[in-house]
Design a binder for these strands. Structure first.
Lengths: 259, 259
DNA sequence: ACCTGAACACCGTTCAAGT
DNA sequence: ACCTGAACACCGTTCAAGT
């Protein structure tokens, strides 16, 4: 319904197009390649045109984070909508909060059949799967200012699961802090995943092997199980799942202790 | 013993002085103010002189991270040295690993009196205290390349505690992943601590309050307990301690289950 | 309303050169 | 061995101007 004629190069810019193009660049070339100039070129536009749609680079990154979490939210709500064998609503955003029972401190957990751990685990693993497609996104999410509408909706849903699982507001609040970034599908590791840092580390470690007896012992024990591996051996998915299970189990124990 | 005469401005540059000055700048003005030029000026030197001591900015940041973790390590070893009521060695770096019993999978936990949770908790809280003095440091520690000698020593000590506590190498490995960055005293929160983001969030939240029933309920419940607070209400220290306790308890359960 | 062009201040970094 | 000066490519961003 637009003025047609030459429809190809004249799709007008918009915040959505800007953010989408930014995600493309970050996915393809890393977040370091996401500059205002590169983004403009990718959109076939002059760099300064971006500033009509986006206040500055910080706002751009906030918007990009919002887009990624929007992606997470869409997949989470789709999965929770179809898998729901008790609630009714689906598709609508409000479906993330189809709860009801969670009242104040120590209220009786009336809905007894609900497995909050399983529900939260599923939600978190969906979020993680999305973030694996955007490995640069965690760095954006930890910046101040990344708290947009989608993040709010996502965590409202996390909170809904906890409340429905029998947590008081207060305990649910603590639980969300304890989960930290894991609640939205990532945990920052201190050990570089697959970089050239593996070389550096190996070199460093070799020089002071005798000063690190326990790490050395662990490396030996693990390379015994899986011969061809030094430092890039870890099964990230398995470690992440183990981590959330420890947390979810610990939180369930704390919840029951508090009843 | 230098040529004396004008001893003030002529302390020659060194990696240590460069890193120390970088820490000063980051502490005083934030990590964003740490530029090669600003660092040079702070040292009374031309910007290009830095490159004689440091390969590039990435290497500078790696070195700064190493300095901070060195600070953590020093305080940790000092505390563990004086508080040790069973081991003998103190002061030496190898004291961090005064263990011995932790053999392979499911070995008998001979040293029964050792409270690994308490030991690890103390270590972690010391690390956290140091990081609170350098709030910009976590961002450096999550970069690839931050794995220097001090980080290695620190985690060798963490591993020593776990092994002495009865973990197998394999379980200890999982445990360290589960702890993640908390093992060295920080956890990244998705909600900005004290920024102007609080205004944005409040505004955003106000606009869609009815769509976030659970978050709204929680805010009300918590502001009921503590009237003058909206989003900057959280007791970070208490939340952090709750988080590690959940993890440590969960890990202890998993360890006992595996025996 | 939406986009552009030239310019500014500031980065990290190179290179050849000084002492 | 250690430091400097000038220069380069690249940032984010301003401002006044175009359509």
């Amino acid at each position: 319904m637009t003025t047609s004629s030459d429809a190809r190069p004249r799709t007008p810019l918009s915040r959505e197009r800007v953010f989408a193009a930014a995600v493309e660049i970050a996915d393809a070339e890393g977040i370091g390649a996401l500059t205002m100039r590169a983004l403009a070129e990718h959109l076939g536009v002059e760099a300064m045109s971006l500033y009509y749609h986006v206040a500055n680079k910080a706002a751009l990154l906030d918007g990009v984070a919002e887009v990624v979490v929007g992606e997470i939210l869409a997949e989470v709500l789709a999965a929770e909508g179809e898998g729901a064998d008790d609630g009714g609503e689906s598709g609508d955003r409000a479906a993330a909060g189809s709860v009801g029972s969670g009242t104040g401190d120590g209220g009786p957990p009336s809905a007894s059949a609900f497995d909050w751990r399983d529900a939260l685990r599923r939600r978190i693993l969906i979020a993680r799967a999305v973030l694996l497609r955007h490995p640069w996104a965690p760095a954006l999410l930890t910046r101040p200012g990344a708290f947009g509408p989608s993040v709010a909706f996502y965590f409202d849903g996390v909170l809904a699961i906890l409340l429905r699982g029998g947590f008081s507001y207060d305990h649910a609040h603590h639980a969300m802090h304890a989960l930290g970034s894991r609640a939205i599908g990532f945990s920052q590791e201190l050990f570089a995943p697959d970089d050239a840092a593996a070389d550096v580390s190996e070199e460093v470690l070799a020089q002071m092997a005798e000063q690190l007896p326990h790490l050395m012992g662990m490396l030996q024990a693990i390379s015994h199980d899986d011969p061809d591996s030094n430092l890039g051996w870890c099964d990230d998915q398995a470690e992440f799942e183990f981590g959330i299970d420890v947390l979810l189990d610990g939180l369930e124990s704390a919840r029951r202790r508090a009843l």
